[in-house]
Design a binder for these strands. Structure first.
Lengths: 121, 121
DNA sequence: TTTTTCCGGAACAGAACGTTCCGGATGGAT
DNA sequence: ATCCATCCGGAACGTTCTGTTCCGGAAAAA
C-alpha cells in the first residue's frame, strides 16, 4: 500500500527524524520499519496501531483515509515534544516536566530583603 | 487483534446488519470477513481502509486507538507538560524539545562486531 | 414443510512476513 | 588523511498467515 509508505516517510520528516530513528521510537527492527517505509511489507494491525500512536498521528491518516492539516513551526515543535515525551520513563518525564515548568512559571519579584534561593520556587 | 474483531461486530450491530451482510457491503467473501470478525485473520491495509470507509467508521476506532484515555498519573504529567510548553518562548521550547528527544530516541542496536564505547550517550 | 441465509470448523496451497547478512553512502571525530 | 557510527536498501530464507474451498448445523424466511 504505497500511500502508507508515503505517509510514514512524511511523518518522520515532519518530526525531523530519520526512518531508523522512527523505527527505534516504535521499538521495531530497523529493517522491518524500512520495509514498511519502502512499500515492501505491511505491518499487522497491532503494529499499525502502535506506529500511529507512537508517531502521534492517526491510522486514518496513515492509510490515506484523511488528509493532514498544515502546521505552524511552533505546532511542529510541540508535536515533536509529545512524540519524544511519550517514549520517556516516568522518571525522565517528571524531570522534563519540572524543567519545563521552571521555565514557564514566572519567578517571584525580588522582595528587596534578600535574593531568594533558586530552588524552592 | 481482538479489539478489531470486537469493533467489527459492534459496528455491524450498530448498522443492524449481519456480519454476512457487512461482508457483502465491503465486497468481501463471507468466510473471509467472518475470519476477521472472529479474530482468526487480519486484513491487509487496503482492506482495512475499505472496511472503515464502507462501514462509515474510522480505522482508529476499529483499531482501538480512539478509546477515551483514563486520567492516569502519567497522563496528567503529559497534560502539565503541554500546558507548560504552551507558555514557553520558541527558543525555550526548542531547547526542551531537543533535550526530550535526546532522552527518548534509543540508540541503534550493537552490531555485535565490536563492543561500543561507553561514552557517546 | 422446504428453502434461504447465517454462521463457524477444518484443510491446504500460496503469499507475505520478519529476520539475518551484507555493503555502499554519508557525516562526524581524530 | 583514516576510522567509526549511522543510515539506507538489496537479497535470501524459514516461518507464519492468508484467502479459498468444502462442509454441516442452526435459524429465519417463504
Amino acid at each position: 500500500m504505497d500511500i502508507f509508505a508515503k505517509r510514514l516517510k512524511e511523518r518522520a520528516a515532519d518530526l525531523g527524524i530519520s526512518n531508523a530513528q522512527a523505527a527505534r521510537l516504535c521499538e521495531l527492527d530497523e529493517r522491518r520499519y524500512a520495509n514498511y517505509a519502502n512499500d515492501q511489507r505491511e505491518p499487522d494491525l497491532m503494529t499499525l496501531a502502535k506506529i500511529a500512536r507512537v508517531l502521534n498521528t492517526s491510522a486514518d491518516h496513515l492509510l490515506g483515509l484523511t488528509d493532514p492539516t498544515p502546521q505552524t513551526a511552533r505546532a511542529r515543535l510541540l508535536d515533536r515534544l509529545n512524540v519524544a515525551a511519550a517514549s520517556l520513563t516516568d522518571e525522565e518525564l517528571r524531570t522534563i516536566v519540572t524543567q519545563t515548568e521552571a521555565l514557564a512559571i514566572p519567578r517571584p519579584k525580588k522582595t528587596g530583603k534578600k535574593i531568594p534561593p533558586i530552588s524552592g520556587v
